[in-house]
Design a protein around this nucleic acid. Structure first.
Lengths: 239, 239
DNA sequence: CTAAAGGTGACAAAAATTGACACTATAAAA
DNA sequence: TTTTATAGTGTCAATTTTTGTCACCTTTAG
């Protein structure tokens, strides 16, 4: 087994099991504890956030948000991604476009600088029209990229999500809901959720949601979201 | 210098100089010819297309289209890219969405499989509406990803582009134009080009363009594209 | 205090990389 | 035809990097 492969195996094991100890990892990958510790150090250098605790009952824990992936992309592929993100932003943006920008910045950084210049010049030749003119961009909502993990976890772990919501009239309420779907009607995004207190579905404009937090321990089941059924997703939405 | 760093240096040198010889590269990176040959072999294994010719006057040549870049992305960033591309496709797609798909497939492949499953499940919670309903997707044009390099070069090198164009009435003409801009009005893309034969700007729907090829040796200058001026980009476009 | 955990430093053993050299093949020039 | 300049392969010893062992330190729970 390669050095790289072994480090990947360690990262994978940590991801899968949540926590582990150096000794257990050493046995798993067939290397000494010293080598595993060196690998952990290398992974940390590469940006993995690995918490560790000394003492009895301690161990290693990988921060899932720090999981990184390396992909080898051709210039054309990078370009296609650039266009997608640029078009999306011109069409009104997405709440998480900041993250996409970061991703693209990283990709660009990895490209040779002359290629980046070429791409930029090509992008200058792009005019993305009409859609950007139809909608009021100044009114477009944005979300802090830091909020994404909370939403992602709420969907995947089926945990309740608690947040403040300011409706079209400016009235602020506290909500605790079961996230069922995301509805994208550029430039606006809506969280479609079951509101147990009201025993009904509600649409929440994402940019009117603030301080979302996961409710630990409370899970729910997926419901059939009645799109196009008796609840129209397009009508009754505040834009 | 690291093995990886040296291989990167070799790839960069080939990119910069177009062609080179093993001996020259060996001197440049301070290694033996044997080692450079081994590195070349490794680069080829990784997907770089490096043409070589034996004999006097021969040498190595890197296919610029095979230039690859590695970027380290967090899961959230991958997710943001996924959403961008998915939304773009729902909004009518882009001519090069195939390339974006390939790029994302590569990124996904690099992610651990459990994370991919999570992302897929999250994407299932996305409903991208309205735009997709407004436009006739069946009428949407697509372009072969292989055509992108020709367009990119035409823009960057300011070379004439020759292609067949089938207009709204089905009449096919042969064109040779100066590409000036791309106009994106989802779901359709237009090439805005100066047509020297007609001494005027013309808009070409990208999906009605076929067999584009670069005209070697003929370059042109950038013109001021009269958007929103006396030529409206939105009117007079066949949709 | 003890046991179980993470972490560091030093050094020899093991493994991978590298260079030297001999060799083959090819293409252009002399 | 011979020479020269190039790519490419195989082998093996020298060099460099990686790994394991061991001694030792710190932290924490019981």
């Amino acid at each position: 087994m390669n050095v790289r492969q072994r480090q990947d195996a360690i990262a994978r094991s940590l991801r899968r099991n949540g926590t582990s100890t150096v000794a257990a990892l050493a046995q798993e990958v067939g290397a000494s504890k010293r080598t595993v510790l060196r690998d952990i150090s290398a992974l940390r250098d590469e940006g993995f956030v690995i918490h560790s605790e000394a003492g009895r009952g301690g161990g290693l824990q990988l921060d899932p948000q720090s999981i990184q992936t390396t992909a080898r992309l051709s210039v054309s592929e990078v370009f296609a991604l650039l266009i997608s993100v640029a078009s999306m932003r011109a069409a009104g943006g997405i709440p998480f476009s900041g993250l996409a920008d970061v991703a693209l910045a990283k990709i660009e950084k990895a490209l040779p600088s002359d290629k980046v210049r070429d791409l930029r010049r090509f992008l200058d030749c792009l005019y993305i029209g009409e859609l950007a003119l139809q909608v009021d961009i100044s009114n477009m909502g944005t979300m802090e990229p830091e909020l994404l993990p909370a939403f992602e976890t709420a969907f995947l772990q089926r945990q309740h999500l608690r947040f403040q919501y300011r409706d079209a009239k400016g009235v602020v309420t506290q909500r605790e809901v079961e996230p069922q779907a995301m509805l994208i009607l550029p430039p606006l995004w809506y969280l479609v959720a079951w509101d147990p207190a009201r025993e009904d579905f509600r649409h929440f404009r994402m940019d009117r949601i603030s301080t979302p937090e996961l409710v630990e321990g409370v899970t729910f089941r997926r419901r059939h979201v009645p799109f196009g059924d008796h609840v129209s997703p397009v009508r009754n939405l505040s834009r």
